[in-house]
Design a protein around this nucleic acid. Structure first.
Lengths: 223, 223
DNA sequence: ACCTGAACACCGTTCAAGT
DNA sequence: ACCTGAACACCGTTCAAGT
């Protein structure tokens, strides 16, 4: 092959960049799951040899952190600027939850990769600002922030990893558990089973948010 | 080597069992992290060939699920039987949190492996029973349970994966962030930084619990 | 400057052969 | 019934060689 032909080849396909690698990695995670992401598969997907990736990214961990960054940038923040405590934070948390639900296979990434780039810290800054404005001390602002974010992530985790997430198998699941479990030892579980399975997770999330904000406001009034 | 010598060998070391495999796997995870657990390393640790494991366990996923089961059994439940809403559930959640904090490297396992054995469902049954007894409808009992467990897991995740978990590096961290981040764009973050780093996570957890139970009781009174 | 093939030290798992 | 070595199809990453 002549040098000219190779030049043409290179111009035909997009040049490899960090951004393109991260975008492709996220796609792969969304489609096939986090376990299925390998440097070799990622390279193949980009039509490139596995080793080319290492010209743009130091290692696989950097890819995973980069994907996490991309996800955190997806959070819509405009709706929470300058609003009051409940309205502003609820908007931010709903947007955060939406991103998490849009990328369920990447949840573990968000849980385990603390990112400290300015983009990633922006939501935290806004959240703390809202809490401070509402009257919380710096200590309690941090605690309230942790509570809200912890609750949101935990709740999504519950929804996403629910053993009975597939609605088409609900009936099977109920039947199976009735066989496996001694009903008389788990009366409340069985009473709540259908709801737990068919549950409206959005409504459940709002239920929790309401309770938490009621509690936070009570704390504020008491201090 | 004679047949007799091999017999002696076998009698010298404990016989391989599922229980022994799971216990060893948990140890390995606690010591070296989840990433470091491989079937081959696990086998080596047990002084056995990698393939022997497959006589007691179908595959690696089964090992991970088994370890999760073991962890869930560690939750102390006696203290929450028959107690009132706040006292009982707080006791259970603190015990759950203790187990999670004792095995930080296994947190992802608990988050992603829904276990449906009777042992694993016992805590849920007790939690739901307490909530129903306090007056919640089946729907709201499930929602409150999700909220509490989601909060607890999320909070521990925050604590465990905090980028600044190593207290010896707190000062470095502050200095580094001051360099990297434009202070004027993150005033609240910097104001809260020291607390976020040195924060008393136990106190923060209790702060959130208090707020949540205040909110739950308000819900109960309103309905 | 960017890409690549060959190589190294690992994986999980299967299978046929041992006791 | 339990254990094992060899083998297969994968990994992440390094390095020297290409353009």
């Amino acid at each position: 092959m002549t040098a000219k032909a190779i030049e043409t080849d290179r111009r035909l396909r997009e040049p490899l960049t960090r951004e393109r690698i991260l975008a492709c990695a996220l796609q792969l995670i969304d489609r096939d799951g986090l376990e299925e992401l390998s440097m070799r598969r990622l390279a193949a997907e980009l039509d490139v040899s596995a080793m080319s990736l290492y010209n743009h990214v130091p290692n696989k961990e950097a890819v995973l952190e980069g994907v996490t960054e991309v996800l955190l940038r997806e959070i819509e923040l405009t709706e929470m600027e300058g609003l009051d405590l409940e309205t502003g934070l609820k908007a931010g948390l709903r947007s955060f939850r939406r991103v998490l639900l849009d990328h369920p296979n990447a949840l573990t990434l968000i849980e385990t990769r603390p990112i400290v780039t300015p983009d990633a810290l922006k939501p935290i800054e806004l959240s703390l600002a809202t809490l401070r404005r509402a009257g919380f001390s710096p200590d309690d602002a941090v605690r309230a922030h942790w509570m809200l974010v912890g609750y949101t992530i935990g709740h999504v985790g519950f929804q996403v990893n629910s053993p009975i997430a597939d609605p088409s198998r609900v009936q099977d699941e109920i039947a199976m558990r009735r066989q496996t479990l001694p009903v008389e030892q788990f009366p409340n579980l069985f009473e709540c089973l259908r709801m737990a399975i068919e549950g409206d997770f959005d409504a459940a999330f709002e239920f929790g948010l309401d309770a938490i904000f009621a509690g936070l406001k009570a704390k504020l009034a008491a201090s």
